[in-house]
Simulated scan of single mutants.
Amino acid sequence: MASPKPLHGTELVDCARANAKQGIETAAYQCGYGEDLNKFAQELRQACEEMNLQVKELSELITEQDLILQLGTGEIIAPDTPSEL
């Protein structure tokens, strides 16, 4: 669900990261910036700087963990039953 108002700070970075794989247009819309890509990019850059993140492109917000989860190559290790903890 898209934000009804433009996000800022950590909320903006979190939302942008969650939508980075879908591209800048989708990320801007979901973060409340509609079609104003320039404002979205400017605010995201500022938010990243405040968090000491060195990000030049939206795709840099996608972490290795995100990619592993997307590929589904992780192996789940768990006991067969709750009593086998």
Rank of each mutant, 00 (worst) to 15 (best):
E50G: 02
V13T: 08
T26H: 10
E25H: 11
V55M: 04
S83H: 15
L44E: 06
A2F: 05
I68S: 02
P79M: 10
V55L: 03
Q65C: 09
M1D: 08
P6I: 07
M51T: 00
T26K: 14
A28L: 08
L61T: 02
E50V: 01
K56I: 02
K5Y: 14
Q46C: 06
A78K: 15
F40G: 05
Q42H: 05
G72E: 08
C31K: 03
I76N: 10
Y33D: 06
L37C: 01
Q54R: 12
Y29S: 15
H8G: 00
L7R: 05
E75A: 14
E60W: 09
I62W: 03
T81I: 01
D36E: 03
A47R: 03
K39D: 10
Q42G: 00
E50K: 11
P4K: 02
K5N: 14
A27Q: 05
A20Y: 05
I62M: 06
K21T: 11
K56S: 13
E64T: 06
N19W: 09
P79L: 08
N38D: 13
I24Y: 09
Q54F: 05
A27Y: 05
C48A: 06
E50H: 06
D80R: 14
Q65S: 10
Q42T: 10
C31D: 01
K39G: 00
K39A: 15
K39Q: 12
P4E: 06
P79W: 10
D36M: 02
G23P: 08
N19A: 13
M51R: 08
S59P: 00
I76L: 15
R45H: 14
K21I: 10
I24N: 07
M1C: 02
E57K: 08
L37A: 06
Q65E: 15
L85S: 15
G9Q: 07
K39I: 07
P4R: 06
T63Y: 03
T26E: 15
L69R: 14
L58I: 01
T73E: 13
V13D: 07
Q42W: 01
E75S: 11
D66F: 03
G34I: 08
Y33P: 06
I24M: 14
M51I: 00
G74M: 13
E49K: 12
E60T: 10
L71S: 09
Q42I: 11
L61M: 03
D66C: 08
A28H: 05
Q30L: 03
V13H: 10
R17I: 06
S59K: 14
A18I: 04
V13N: 07
T10V: 10
D80P: 01
K39H: 09
L71W: 05
P6D: 02
T81L: 12
E35Q: 09
G34M: 03
S83N: 15
K21E: 11
L7W: 07
P4T: 02
P79H: 13
E64K: 08
E11V: 00
A27L: 07
D80V: 13
D80H: 13
E84C: 12
T10M: 06
T73Q: 12
T81H: 12
G34E: 01
A47M: 04
D14C: 09
S3K: 05
T10Q: 13
G32N: 04
E60A: 09
E57L: 00
C31E: 01
Q54M: 03
